[in-house]
Amino acid sequence: MDLTVVAYVVYLLISIGLTIWVARTLSTNGRIFLADVLRGDEKLADAVNHLLVVGFYLVNFGFVALYLKAADAVEDARGLFEALSVKLGVVLLVLGVLHLGNVFILNKMRRRGIMEKEQIPPVPPQGWATPATPAL
């Protein structure tokens, strides 16, 4: 079997496995963070979490598919490992950048929600008090 084809198969298996593992980990552990960002709305947090996972899969699987083609044919075992290390390294970097981008955006939303919450008075105004007249 051609080593380039072996490189493709190994690359796809590892990349797809990594993408699924990262998506499940982020989905499971990110749910609590999303619920906090969305002010405790569990249903909305679950829906947003699911949409983020679907988007994560689409972007990553699309990138993995586009990045499949090797520039040069793989001639030996050394070339196989070098090609795989470059391809998998780039996939891992893309996964990390997407994760950090999501966390950054969600953290901004969370901070905005906290600031808005702090601006609401704890007790609504009870009415107006008339100013006292100065005593002579």
Score class of each variant (00 low, 15 high):
I16R: 00
A129T: 15
E82F: 14
R39F: 09
N60E: 06
I32W: 09
D46K: 11
P124A: 08
V53H: 05
V5D: 13
P124K: 14
Y11T: 10
G62F: 03
K69L: 14
V22E: 04
P121H: 14
A70I: 06
A47R: 12
F56W: 08
G55K: 00
N107C: 06
T130C: 06
L44I: 02
V59M: 02
V10Q: 13
N49I: 00
L18E: 03
P122N: 10
W128K: 08
L44P: 01
T4V: 07
V91G: 02
R39G: 06
S27K: 11
A135I: 14
S85M: 10
A65Y: 08
D76T: 02
R78L: 15
Q119P: 06
E118K: 13
W21I: 08
N107S: 11
V48M: 03
L84I: 00
V90M: 03
G89N: 04
N49D: 00
A65H: 07
N29A: 15
R110L: 03
G30M: 01
D36N: 14
L88V: 14
R78H: 12
K117D: 09
R24I: 05
E75R: 15
V10E: 05
L12W: 06
T19L: 03
L66N: 12
M1P: 07
A35P: 05
P124Q: 11
M1F: 09
T28D: 07
